[in-house]
Each structure stands twice: as structure tokens, then as C-alpha cells.
């Protein structure tokens, strides 16, 4: 099993490197989703370096915990985390979105690189995670299933079909996380189609809800996962208030970087701010 840590300094350093690599990969690809990748970094680093039981050297290990990236467009962050965890070489990140690469624009099911499900079209991933959670329960497996959703994704009706299934089936081996960065492709969610109050909606749908004031704060993320594990009889959702484009001043809370890769100049600024010489 992969070594896990609760040391916040170590996790912060991993997050810094994960950001650097995902930005380099996006820059090289010349396209992709910068904002929503950066907003997910601390959540993904917490999962893969602290919370989940998994083994990058044996990605088909039957008793691994499962992670489904329902917000598939944020996959540059996941690839970077998987590379840092040892699923594949960091150099491969530079093949992102290129012809012949395993690192497709949106994730394709490939256990060799740690991708558990094909996603990218929003409103699918939580249903797949439910199926995994139901199968695990049938088999009496003591494993946990995690799914990361975007807040924009909650505009999909199918998301709520899945949210209903999780609670109706009392899937306490399932933990969902909402990367609540409050932006979507066309701009701020409040200007497009507001879906607030998000926590109340999940509560009304029968979930145990934990709202994180700062979805980039490792101690709060880790303690939320701990609470999720101890919650019995219902599924648990962590609604993480995050900052779109987190970690790079010019990208933070800028809706236009939803689906745009960093330019040469922007990459320089970003790497400088992240303490990496360009």
C-alpha cells in the first residue's frame, strides 16, 4: 500500500509541486482546464497522499479504495497527483492531450495509470461511484469510494438522480466532495444559473454534509475525511469552498481560465509565484 501522511508541511509541498507540473502540462498542451484543476489540488493531494488506501505499484489491487473524478475536466490535477504518487513518470505529464497519449483530454478508464472511470461528460461520475459502492457492499469489502464533483455539475439533473440513489441506498462507504469554486464555463454561477443553497440541497437529499470554509486547508480536509469514515447509515459529502485558479494570482477567481491553458507569459508568472524558476 502507498505510504500515507498527515504531515501538513509535506502535503503542502506536494501540492506546490503538483500545481507546477499541471501548469507545465497545460501550457505544453496549449488547451485544457486551468481554473478547475487548480481548485481541486488540495482535495486530490489529501485523497492520494493521506486518505485513500491504494498502491501505485499494483493499480489493480482488489481492495484499493476507489476514486472517480466526476468533474473530468479537472483531470490535469489528477494526472499530476497520480504521477507524483508513482502511477507513471512525471515526464509523461508533458504528453497531456497529445495524439497517442494515455493522458487524454478527459479521463479514460485505464487502471494502469490509476484512472478508475471514464468521465468528462458531467453528471455521470457519482452514479458510477454508487455502483462501485453497492458492489463493494455486496462483496463485504471494507473499501471506500470517493467521487469529486464540481459545483457547476450540480446543474445537471442526472447528478440529483445519483445523489438520491446514494442516500436511498444508505451508502456510508461513499464520500462525495464538491469542489465549490462558484464558476462555470460561461462565468460566475450566480450570473448563469445559481444553484444555491448547495449544502441545504444535499441535506434535503439525505446526506451528511460538512462544509469547509477553506477547501485548500489540509487539516480541515483531513478531519472532514475522518468524519466521513465515522459516519454510518448515510453517505457523506464534503462541500469544499475553493478558489478557482487557486495558487496563481492572475488565475484566481477569473472565470475566463475555466477552459484556457496558461500562455508563455502566464506560465512564467505562475512558476515564479509557485517558487519554481521557469
Amino acid at each position: 500500500m502507498h505510504e500515507r501522511t498527515k504531515n501538513v508541511d509535506i502535503l503542502k509541498e506536494i501540492a506546490r509541486r503538483v500545481r507546477i507540473d499541471l501548469l507545465k502540462a497545460l501550457h505544453r498542451a496549449k488547451s485544457g482546464h486551468t481554473g478547475g484543476s487548480l481548485s481541486s489540488v488540495e482535495i486530490l493531494v489529501s485523497l492520494y497522499f493521506s486518505e485513500m488506501r491504494h498502491n501505485p505499484k499494483n493499480p489493480r489491487w482488489g481492495d484499493r479504495d476507489r476514486f472517480v473524478l466526476s468533474k473530468g475536466h479537472g483531470v490535469p490535477a489528477l494526472y499530476s497527483v497520480l504521477a507524483h504518487a508513482g502511477y507513471f513518470a512525471r515526464e509523461e505529464l508533458m504528453s497531456l492531450r497529445k495524439l497517442g497519449s494515455r493522458l487524454q483530454g478527459h479521463p479514460e478508464y485505464d487502471l494502469e495509470i490509476g484512472i478508475e472511470a471514464t468521465t468528462g461528460s458531467l453528471g455521470h461520475g457519482l452514479s458510477a461511484a454508487n455502483g462501485m459502492a453497492l458492489a463493494a457492499r455486496m462483496d463485504g469489502k471494507d473499501i471506500r469510494i470517493y467521487a469529486l464533483l464540481s459545483d457547476g455539475e450540480l446543474q445537471e439533473g442526472a447528478s440529483w438522480e445519483a445523489i438520491t440513489t446514494s442516500s436511498y441506498r444508505k451508502l456510508d462507504n461513499l464520500c462525495a466532495i464538491v469542489d465549490r469554486n462558484r464558476f462555470q464555463n460561461d462565468g460566475a454561477m450566480k450570473d448563469i444559473k445559481d444553484i444555491e443553497p448547495v449544502p441545504d440541497k444535499w441535506r434535503a437529499f439525505g446526506w451528511e454534509v460538512e462544509v469547509l470554509a477553506d477547501g485548500h486547508d489540509f487539516p480541515s480536509i483531513l478531519s472532514a475525511f475522518e468524519k466521513a469514515r465515522q459516519t454510518k447509515g448515510k453517505p457523506f459529502v464534503i462541500i469544499a469552498n475553493t478558489i478557482k485558479g487557486k495558487g496563481v494570482s492572475i488565475f484566481e477567481n477569473q472565470g475566463k481560465y475555466h477552459g484556457v491553458a496558461p500562455s508563455d507569459d502566464e506560465l512564467k508568472v505562475a512558476l515564479n509565484e509557485l517558487g519554481e524558476a521557469a
Partner: peptide, 23 residues
């Protein structure tokens, strides 16, 4: 046996999750 209610999209992706778990 899983009654998914009137939720065909959810049913299909849930079936995918079952298949991903060897069912």
C-alpha cells in the same frame, strides 16, 4: 436486484460502476 426508480441515466452509469467492480 436494484430498483433505480425513474432514473434511467443514473441506472446506466450505476451499471457501469457495477461492471467496473467485476459484476
Amino acid at each position: 436486484f436494484f430498483t433505480m426508480g425513474v432514473s434511467e441515466q443514473d441506472m446506466m452509469a450505476t451499471a457501469a460502476g457495477f461492471a467496473l467492480s467485476g459484476k
